[in-house]
């Protein structure tokens, strides 16, 4: 049998991989372009800023935009202190031990739980047991739990990347541990932490399964955190699945994709600038 020359082998491998990369990019870009092409023409000031009529078949999507802003912010407000606190504890207050391994394992497990399970839990615990009902609050709490692992992990990375020498200088100047964290560690870890925040917001905007059972699907303008409200993702799902209005579904999808992409772009920009600074 003839041996295939190494050069030919390499050329073949490179070609296959190049095609795989092109295919991947093409598919992902196709999805975005497809949605924007059909959705952007639908967008208008009335579509964005008026309330829906006839279950969303007509009218705009203003309440869903509002819910899509409130819910992620609520989730961040709850998850940020917990997540950054955990990250500080893991990096600054304890050394690697059985306990930290358990905490990290628990965090990894939480990260792996499917959103539908979060939805079930949120329904049982916040909606039913704590009697919050289908509401922005129930949804926000559920989302907070869901994005907590992301916040913890990115904050931990960010805090770890603050040079040890900064801490030593601070201690040598008579600072306490907490003071060092406040004045030196956290300010320098901030861009990294913000990256986690943006990723968490991005995930919250795109979430559907966990919210249907917790925030509900009311189309009215929410008056308080105890009102039910549907986000753009949920609205899009209902429109598309029940075939209510393809036109409005495309319009909603376009706004949804634009928001997620811009939030992720900010996250990426922060991360990139941060890494450059630390290089």
């Amino acid at each position: 049998m003839m041996r295939i020359p190494a050069k030919v082998n390499q050329a073949a491998a490179a070609t296959v991989m190049a095609l795989a990369t092109l295919l991947t990019l093409a598919v992902l870009i196709f999805i975005v372009v497809f949605i924007l092409e059909k959705g952007l023409p639908i967008l208008s000031r009335t579509f964005l800023f008026s309330v829906p009529r006839d279950m969303g078949k007509a009218g705009g999507i203003f309440p869903t935009i509002l819910a899509t802003i409130i819910l992620p912010l609520l989730a961040i407000a709850l998850a940020l202190p917990l997540g950054v606190g955990t990250a500080i504890y893991l990096t600054e207050y304890t050394r690697e031990s059985r306990l930290t391994r358990i905490i990290r394992f628990g965090n990894d497990c939480l990260a792996g739980i499917p959103s539908i399970i979060f939805g079930l839990f949120g329904f049982l615990f916040f909606v039913t047991l704590l009697e919050m009902g289908w509401s922005l609050l129930s949804g926000g709490l559920t989302l907070a739990l869901m994005i907590l692992p992301t916040i913890i992990r990115t904050s931990e990375e960010a805090i770890k990347s603050v040079p040890t020498s900064y801490r030593e200088v601070s201690f040598s100047l008579g600072a306490t541990r907490w003071r060092t964290i406040q004045r030196v560690v956290l300010p320098n870890a901030l861009p990294g932490i913000l990256t986690g925040v943006m990723l968490g917001i991005g995930r919250s905007i795109g979430e559907t399964a966990a919210l249907i059972f917790t925030a509900g699907s009311s189309l009215r303008l929410p008056q308080s955190l105890f009102d039910s409200s549907r986000t753009m993702s949920v609205h899009f799902y209902i429109l598309a699945r029940e075939g209510l209005s393809t036109e409005n579904a495309y319009g909603t999808a376009a706004v949804l994709i634009l928001s997620v992409l811009s939030v992720n772009a900010v996250a990426y920009y922060l991360m990139h600038r941060y890494m450059k600074k630390n290089a």
Partner: peptide
């Protein structure tokens, strides 16, 4: 130890200005 470090200052091998 906090009070100690206020009485005993230290200069490190590499100049480390804090980022402020």
């Amino acid at each position: 130890p906090i009070a100690l470090r206020r009485r005993v200052g230290m200069l490190f091998a590499l100049p480390i200005a804090l980022p402020m």
